[in-house]
Write a protein that binds this DNA or RNA. Structure first.
Lengths: 214, 214
DNA sequence: TATTCCATCCCCCATTTTAGGTATTGATAC
DNA sequence: GTATCAATACCTAAAATGGGGGATGGAATA
């Protein structure tokens, strides 16, 4: 790395804030270009600073670190936000991550690990504790998992037809796509409706997409 | 914790496998109830073992640890799978996590950290490195974010109607739901079609659900 | 061999949806 | 004070869809 990474600190505890500033400026790879006790002038504080990384406290008077993170990621998407907090409060850290934070560290962390976490973020990592990671994983699984709703016993052709339906195609288009007559498409769709217990294409598409039957 | 946690090991390197078994049986909290060099008799190996945790190598002759993880999570969803690997190969670890793994550790990890990771998993955590965590985060954001497809300029009423449409309702049902005439519903839907550039309800529903316009 | 299941096609008929319009009201903007 | 737009509603006609049948050949299965 050629140049020092620029860091801005938001931390209401003066002692900690100044310690961090000191620590960063001591290091070879980082320099602190701003340190503030709250986020009430967030935008002005960051404007024109060429800031690459934010150290963000969660609990601060006025705007919370989570709100601030959202705003930063909206105004300056390139800035990585690293949350720092006293207690490992899963819920607020989780919220912070959802708000766009790149990771978090405990304030009880040793100076070496602090710098380590900064490097993790810089190299594209997202430092977080296992319990946070698990929560993220679970959320992720919820939205990605295939809920094994293959229980409708659709045949291969029926799945194909349903697939086409979810792409918004009409009977005619499906027919030509699958090289069968529209009457056959109709028969398949009738059977699909019976199996899914629906009575219209919109219902079928909604069910297929929401339960990922496709 | 009252009883020892039961662990099964899948690891093709005999030396490592036996070391792990030894390490686990030495510990206060774990006992190894099986250790196998591959996953070719996976189901039989786990059946009737009351196994709570699996240590799973990724690279093994025959079935890979990722395949094995999928099968385990399908057959025995309660079992937590902890991936162990020599190199921090982001991609396969990521795949393993998608397959349902609860975390992973490097084989170079010290015995203390090994036990630490096991405890993390047991207490609901998901040990992983920052780089993996970042990838999971990114994927998570991709699947959760609202892709700002508010660019269709739907009015409030139109969004409402579209919402109902995605629930599979007919014009009549929407009309009575929103206490307007079906003719008005029709008008709204015509406008929706024009704005989304679609020509049927299935297309509209597909677009709405896939792009999360709802 | 008989039976069952799947994929294919056809018919009829009622209902729903789509595609053109037009029109009124109220609110907001210029 | 006029223009614009959202929301409301109606009309007509064409097109698509849904629900009820029935029929055939082929493959798998009992």
């Amino acid at each position: 790395m050629d140049k020092k990474q620029t860091v801005v600190i938001f931390e209401d505890n003066r002692h900690l804030r100044e310690s961090l500033e000191f620590l960063l400026n001591l290091s070879e790879d980082y320099k602190c270009v701003g340190a503030y006790p709250n986020c009430n002038q967030l935008a002005e504080n960051l404007k024109g600073k060429d800031c690459q990384l934010c150290l963000m406290d969660i609990e601060m008077p006025g705007m919370s670190g989570i709100e601030a993170t959202k705003i930063i990621k909206h105004l300056f998407p390139h800035i990585n936000v690293l949350i720092q907090t006293v207690f490992s409060d899963d819920d607020s850290i989780f919220q912070a991550i959802c708000a766009g934070a790149s990771g978090y560290i405990l304030k009880t962390t040793s100076p070496e690990e602090y710098i380590e976490a900064l490097k993790d973020v810089q190299s594209g990592g997202a430092p977080m504790t296992p319990s946070i990671a698990r929560r993220v994983l679970q959320l992720f699984k919820v939205s990605v998992q295939i809920p094994t709703n293959e229980e409708y016993n659709l045949t291969e052709k029926e799945k194909l037809v349903l697939q086409q339906l979810t792409e918004g195609k009409s009977y005619k288009m499906i027919a030509s796509e699958l090289s069968i007559s529209t009457e056959t498409v109709k028969t398949h769709i009738k059977n699909i409706y019976a199996k899914l217990h629906v009575h219209s294409s919109t219902e079928a598409v909604a069910k297929a997409l929401q339960e990922r039957i496709i």
